[in-house]
Amino acid sequence: MWQQLFDGLKNEEFMIVAIAEESRGADHARQWIEQAAAQYWCLIDTEHRVADLYGMVNVPQAVWIDAAGRIVRPPENAGSTDHFRLMDRTTRTLAPEHQAARLAARTAYLDAVRDWVLTGRHALPADAATGRMPRVTPEIALAQAHFRLGVWLRRHGNAAEGDAHLAEASRLHPDSWNMWRQAADLDAVGNASGEAFWQRVQALGERPYYPAPEL
C-alpha cells in the first residue's frame, strides 16, 4: 500500500522509510518487500531500534519528519483499525461493512500523508507535537535493555535465557505489543497471532488496540 503512495509522490522531495521490526532477520521480511516491489527504503531492524528511539509500541506506527529533520507528527497508528477484533475467527472473515470501514480509515490516513507532502497540511505545531510525544519511563528504558539482550541471546543460541529477558521486557513494558508479539514469534512463527494474543487483545476491553490517528 505504501508503494502506491510513493508512486503518486514521485515528483516531490519525499521518501518513505519502511522499517521491518523483525528479530528473525531479513529473510523473514523478504517475501513481503519483494512482493510490494518497493522503490522506497525498506530496512531491517532486528533489535527494534527504531521502536526504542521513537517510543513505538505497535505496528504499523508512523512518524512524519519534515525536510529539516524535525518530527511534525509523533508516532501514531498508521491508519489501521480495530475491526479485526470483530472478525469471525473460525472462518477468518470480516463482515463487508467492517471491511469497507477498515479500508476507508486506511485510505483517509494515506490521503492525509499525501496532503502533507503536497500542501504541508496535518503537520503539527511544535507544542502540539511535543504534547503527543510518548513518555519513556524508567521501566520502559529497562525493558528496552532486556529486550535487546533477549533478542541477542536468542540469536546466539541461548533461547532459554533469552526468553527470560524477553518476558521481563514485556512485564516491564506491558503496553508494547511489539515486544510481546516479537517474543511470541521468536518462540514459534504464528504464535504472535495465536490464542494468547487474542486473550491479550480481549483483555484490552474498551481500550483500542489501534488508537485512531487524530488527523
Binding site: E13, V63, W64, I65, A78, V189
Partner: peptide
C-alpha cells in the same frame, strides 16, 4: 526531503 517513517512486521 519529507520522510514518512513507518514500521511493520511479518508477525
Amino acid at each position: 526531503k519529507q520522510v514518512f517513517l513507518c514500521t511493520w512486521a511479518s508477525w
